[in-house]
Simulated scan of single mutants.
Amino acid sequence: MGRVYVSDTNIWIDFRHAGLLEQLFQLPFRLCSTDFVLQELHDIEHEVLIGHGLLVETMDGPAVQRLFGLMAQHNNSSLADVSCYLLAQDTGRPLLTGDGRLRKQAMRDGLQVFGTLWLLDQLVAHAVVSPARASEGLQAMLAHGARLPSADCQQRIRTWDD
């Protein structure tokens, strides 16, 4: 299962709202998060995610100290999201984030960054879900307040619903 992608909190929440959490684990890559992300996911059963293959990285003392230093630079991103940024930076793994500020910072720092729409595209491209199911999922995310680029969302919904 080749590449490993580091996923922040927003991704898990968006895909839970879409009813597509399980499907993420059918993609041809592995997903990982930090222990801080799991602490933020109150209404998603951690055992279920881990059972599907989620890798959970635990931050050690020095990493946690660096994390608090980064928190000041990334004002407004959550501790969990900054922990994913740090993990992606340390491991060279791509970052999956729905946090606009974190995405911009990660791109400035030369990290590979992908988001919710890219993951939906992957689900369709790898025939894990039908285009119609991806459209339903995206609309459910938006109905739950997902902050995604409107034009990109509308274009996908039109394409997938045809």
Rank of each mutant, 00 (worst) to 15 (best):
V56G: 08
L31Q: 05
S150V: 15
Q139H: 07
S77E: 07
V113I: 04
L41W: 06
L31C: 08
D8K: 06
L95K: 04
I157C: 11
W160L: 01
Q105D: 11
L138S: 03
I13W: 01
Q65P: 03
L96S: 08
I44W: 10
C153P: 07
S77H: 03
F36S: 11
W12N: 12
G69T: 07
D152Q: 15
M141D: 06
M1I: 11
H52P: 00
M71H: 12
Q154H: 11
G53F: 03
M107C: 13
L119G: 07
L20K: 02
A132K: 13
L27Q: 01
P62Q: 02
L70D: 02
H46N: 14
L102N: 09
N76T: 13
I50L: 11
F29K: 06
N75P: 14
R101C: 08
I13K: 10
P131D: 06
H126W: 04
L142Y: 06
Q112D: 14
M141C: 03
R158L: 14
M59C: 08
I50C: 08
R103D: 09
L70M: 08
E136V: 11
H17K: 09
L96W: 06
F25W: 07
N10P: 11
M107S: 15
G137Q: 07
V113P: 15
S130F: 03
M71D: 08
R156D: 12
T34V: 04
M107K: 15
Q23S: 14
N76P: 01
G19A: 02
C32A: 13
P131I: 03
L49T: 01
A140P: 07
D90E: 15
D121E: 05
T91W: 05
L138G: 10
H126P: 01
L31N: 07
L102M: 10
